[in-house]
Simulated assay, not measured.
Amino acid sequence: MADTVAAAIRAATLAIGESDPIARLDAELLMAGALGVSRSDLLLRHMRDAPPPSFSNLLQRRLADEPVAYILGSAEFYGLKLDVTPDVLIPRGDTEVLIDRARDAFADKAPQRVLDCGTGSGALLLAALAQWPEAQGTGIDRSAAALEVAARNAQSLDIAKRTTWHVADWDAPGWDDALDAPFDLILANPPYVEDDAPLAALVRDHEPAGALFAGPEGLDAYRALIPQLPALLAPDGRGFLEIGSRQADAVSAICAAGGFATQVHRDLAMRHRVVEIWVNC
């Protein structure tokens, strides 16, 4: 058995698989969780300590393909620490580009009202509200359990007074009746994975299918949601929709048919990631 934290992390990285690009990161995060410290504190101050007994149990869960975020119960998004459970999709760094582009769009005038469609953990809405302290936000999700996680995150970030949450399914008639439109900024990370897409077991076996899959082309959610957005977006507002890397043309066409002008943005890996929309006057 490894006699230091550093040695235990090396062994855990090998066990997870050196070919896994996040094996080392996962091992470090699990060790930090076992020690009850931040990852940076782990790397700076604890590498020569004896590994805690609880680390082994956490590692075994990761080796059984359980995501680290669910094991630890939290994930970071845009500098915010968020609670996550298997009821919500794990926030990903690629999604942060929606907030980056929204900040660009509202550099001169902050949005006052923000809507997050399919809010899950609340990651997008809470990150937006953290950028604009005067803004009010509404998050909708068809999962009541997900909204409980989002509301808890809003409370822990001291943003709860500026948020409202609604159980709503954009496939159901009248889903937006309680939303008090219009909104200056609309954010959405809808399901966009093809039903038969090959996914890693970490994702396929643990994250909520309803937040991932959207028909044979991965476009069902866009086809349902986008035609309803003109009634929700203010005339001078902006919307930002996350897309799969090969969906830019298809989603842009759906937006254009719905009366929107569009611009596609790339993520840090230079993959198509966001379609920005505004009313095409």
Rank of each mutant, 00 (worst) to 15 (best):
A234T: 03
L212W: 09
P208D: 13
E242F: 02
G244A: 08
L232H: 05
E207D: 13
P235S: 12
P227A: 10
Y222F: 15
D196T: 08
Q228T: 02
D236A: 10
D196I: 03
G210S: 03
D249E: 13
R204K: 15
D220T: 12
G239K: 02
P208C: 11
A197Q: 14
F240I: 07
E242G: 05
Y222E: 01
V203F: 08
L225R: 01
A234V: 10
P235D: 14
H206T: 04
D195Y: 01
A201Q: 14
A201S: 13
I226Y: 07
G237T: 02
L212A: 04
A248V: 01
G215T: 08
G218W: 04
L202Y: 10
L233G: 09
A214P: 08
D220H: 08
L202S: 08
R223V: 00
F240A: 07
E207L: 08
G218N: 09
A250F: 07
A209F: 06
D196L: 06
V203C: 09
L212F: 07
I226H: 08
A248M: 05
G239V: 03
G239I: 04
A209K: 15
D195F: 05
D195Q: 06
A231D: 14
E207K: 07
L225A: 02
R238N: 05
A248C: 06
E242Q: 05
E207P: 11
G244V: 01
L229G: 05
A221P: 11
D196C: 00
A200Q: 14
R238G: 06
A248W: 04
